[in-house]
Amino acid sequence: MAAILNVRATVRRYALPQAFAAELVRLLDDHVNEIHSRTRVSRSVLSVKTQERRTTALCSAFVELRKGGFALESPWSLREKHVKWLVALWVKQEQSGGTIENKLTYLRALSQWIGKPALVLTLGNYVDRVEHGLKRSYVATADKSWSANDIDAAAKIAEIAQTCPYVAVQLKLQVAFGLRVEESFLLRPLEAVRSPQTLGVRHGTKGGLAREVPLEAKVGVLEEAARLSNGTTGSTVPADRSLKQWRDWYYYVLDKHGVTKAGLGVTSHGLRHEYLQLLYEKVSGVPAPIKGSDARAERDSHDEAMRRVVAAAGHTRKTKANAYLSVFGLKERLERQRRQPPTRAEVEKALLDAAGNKSRAAEALGISRQALYRLLAAS
């Protein structure tokens, strides 16, 4: 049976009126674990972690509304004006586009539960994402791998092992197999090897999508993990800790050893980036685009490397690989963006050279055709 979050305990942490909180608890009890998607139908349920994120996001939104002067009597009272006000608040607070979109997703699920499916729109319906710097990008612009930040992963993990061997072995699993953090927590080393060639990743995956990753010659890491595995669950989360307690401890240990953006400039997620970048290079024969090399793979080799990276990462769309690898030509694109917009004289010359063809003129200027139109309109 799928796990259901104790929503009552979570809602209780927020300063919401008793009657309002009771209504919200009833809604969450009925729906909190349901998948909400406009593009797919699934009988799966959300993980407890995602249920908790959904619950806390909704509670926080209602608390913000009350502080803003909106005394909603129940969650059923949510209106379009409330959503618009929240988006304006989040933009003013300089929250990222991705963060705001996630919050809108949770509100959209709630609107479905209360019979108002068209109530919550996408971020672009409320603000100009480009103007406010909220355009979400799935293309990496900075290399998050540890090697790119001059961190010796083996040495740092050995140092962490002196504090906690469990955290260290989970980091080793991330290095060896490109696992997400929670996947490294919940991997059951004694069960995961299904064949001599692959490792089955089944627990803690995003969206519940199981996958197989190449085992290669990395059995030693699994043997070490097996020696530390919990006799009850089979994972490397110690028996005396809940998953939440372990997550808190894991990040405490990393912070203690400087493995944070504010410390060494890296997180443990950077180990996953490193694994996938190396996989791309192994298959294609050239470094990943994020490495800044001028070498480019042949089309067939590039396509096969992207396919392998997406499969190993546990994604379904090819474009998701760009979040780890970036794209060729990124350096030139960023340089164009940093440049001052072309002057009126430069625009006129480009149009003259292109015999009035706006697409060719825009390409020569290194801008989009839409940007060219904006410059012409502003002149």
Rank of each mutant, 00 (worst) to 15 (best):
L27H: 15
V41A: 14
D29T: 09
L72H: 15
S44D: 15
L27V: 06
E34F: 09
L24S: 02
V63I: 07
C59Q: 08
E23K: 04
E73G: 15
Q18G: 04
G68L: 11
L72C: 12
K67V: 08
G68F: 11
R40H: 15
R54N: 06
L28S: 05
G69A: 10
P75M: 08
E23M: 01
L46V: 05
R66D: 04
S60H: 08
G68Y: 07
L65A: 09
Q18K: 13
N33S: 12
L24T: 04
L58V: 07
G69C: 06
H36A: 06
E34S: 11
K49T: 07
S37E: 07
N33W: 03
A21P: 07
T39A: 08
Q18C: 05
F70R: 05
L28K: 00
T55E: 02
R38I: 07
L72N: 07
E73D: 14
A57N: 12
D30Y: 07
G69H: 06
V25P: 00
H36N: 11
D30S: 13
E73S: 15
S47M: 05
S44F: 06
E52S: 09
E23N: 08
F62E: 00
V45R: 14
E64Y: 07
C59W: 05
D30L: 11
A21M: 10
H36F: 14
V25K: 03
F20P: 00
I35A: 01
K67S: 10
A19C: 10
W76Q: 12
L46I: 02
P75S: 05
V25E: 13
A57Q: 09
R26I: 01
R54Q: 02
S42V: 05
R40S: 14
K67L: 12
A21Y: 00
N33H: 13
V63F: 08
A57I: 05
L28F: 11
G69Q: 07
A61G: 07
A21S: 14
S47A: 14
L24G: 00
A22W: 03
V32N: 09
F70S: 09
H36I: 03
G69F: 10
R38C: 04
A61Y: 01
R43M: 09
A61P: 01
T55A: 13
S74H: 15
N33I: 01
W76V: 02
C59A: 13
R40G: 01
A22F: 02
S37R: 07
D29W: 01
F70H: 13
R53Y: 09
A61L: 12
F62S: 03
P75Y: 02
S74A: 15
A61N: 09
T56L: 02
L24N: 00
K67A: 11
L46A: 06
W76F: 15
T56H: 11
L27T: 08
V32M: 06
R54V: 08
P75F: 04
D30R: 15
S47Y: 09
L24P: 00
L46M: 10
Q51F: 02
A71Y: 15
A22P: 00
V48M: 12
H31A: 06
S44A: 13
E64C: 02
S37C: 10
R40D: 12
E73C: 06
S44C: 12
V45C: 03
T56C: 10
S44N: 14
L28R: 01
R26F: 03
L27N: 12
